[in-house]
């Protein structure tokens, strides 16, 4: 953790760590895309999430890294695994119609590529190592409750709606049998 006064030389350990973590994330993502077994895909997703969390740590965003692992590995991934394990035919997924996949896929991928290129070219990259001593938690908390209070509240309302919706959907209808008998 918190590497002290690190000089961003060509062969410093932080650079090596960055490539290792980026490699982990990319290999994990490739595993998700190319694996024939959904369980393996889901577990590759975990590897990818952990790699991304490591990248967040290198960027000095320790809070985001912790939340990434807690929510994505501990929550989203577990629920995904949970759902996948209850489905039939986990090994060798048969896609019945392969012909329609091509063109939409190309459209989506190229669209995403354009958006990502824009994001990368406009981002303000730090040109030196970031200090890890200060926690990013305060900054995140203050930003969420001051400048971004509206998105924050909207997100919480959306989550509440999802919760209530899930309850409504899964609730069994109570049939009033007692009255007839």
């Amino acid at each position: 953790m918190g590497v002290g006064p690190s000089s961003m030389e060509n062969l410093s350990l932080s650079v090596l760590t960055f490539y290792a973590l980026a490699g982990t994330a990319v290999v994990g993502a490739a595993g998700v895309a190319f694996s024939r077994n959904i369980i393996y895909s889901a577990l590759s997703l975990m590897v990818s999430f952990l790699g991304v969390a490591g990248l967040y740590v290198i960027l000095g965003a320790d809070f985001i890294a912790g939340v990434q692992v807690l929510l994505y590995v501990g929550g989203v991934l577990v629920l995904t695994l949970f759902a996948v394990m209850l489905t039939q035919g986990i090994r060798d997924v048969e896609v019945s119609n392969r012909s329609v996949g091509r063109i939409p896929a190309i459209v989506i991928v190229s669209g995403t590529a354009v958006v990502m290129y824009e994001a990368v070219s406009k981002a303000g990259w730090a040109d030196k190592a970031l200090a890890m001593d200060e926690s990013s938690t305060y900054a995140v908390g203050n930003a969420l409750l001051s400048d971004y209070i509206l998105p924050f509240e909207v997100a919480s309302i959306v989550l509440l709606a999802v919760l209530v919706g899930a309850v409504v959907l899964t609730r069994k209808e109570v049939v009033a049998e007692d009255e007839s008998s």
Binding site: M1, L43, M46, D62, F63, A65, G66, V67, V69, L70, V73, G74, G75, L77, V78, L81, F82, M85, M132, E134, S135, S136, T137
Partner: peptide
């Protein structure tokens, strides 16, 4: 760690993945 307790909860959430596997 600055995020100490959050880190502990995050790390222990790996356990459930292992149990599921």
């Amino acid at each position: 760690l600055n995020i100490g307790i959050l880190y502990v909860t995050a790390a222990t959430s790996l356990v459930v993945v292992g149990i599921l596997i």
